[in-house]
Amino acid sequence: MTLFSDLGPAQLAEAAHTFSEESYPADQRILRQGFTGSGFYVILEGQVAIRIDGQDRARLGKGDFFGEMSLLLAEPPVADVVALGPLRVLHLADRDLREFLERHPAVMYRMLQTVARRLRNANRWQG
């Protein structure tokens, strides 16, 4: 899983114990547009749709993550994230993300890379 690929075995074990595993049925919303108090998620199995005002804008799959923008900005999500089939994810609560990233700068760097890539792609799309 790219996000955690720089961690050693002991740090990986800690990450595995820090996140909780959750399961969602098809069509279930995991993030809800406009609702506060969401979390950070990494997809273990399955796919999700990023849905804004009912329109699908993107898909994410195994190894991808979502929810970080809302937590970093302390604002409600601007999109729904909906399971496109049975979904297994790792979940980290809002309050735990900052501490986890500060304990693992390598994960923070990987996250920044992905966020930068998404921003670049969004800029290209708009251009």
């Binding site: 969602y24 108090g37 979390g39």
Partner: peptide, 10 residues
């Protein structure tokens, strides 16, 4: 195993 909304991680 049913997570609910888990708002603010609760």
């Amino acid at each position: 195993g049913v997570p609910g909304l888990r708002r603010f991680g609760i």
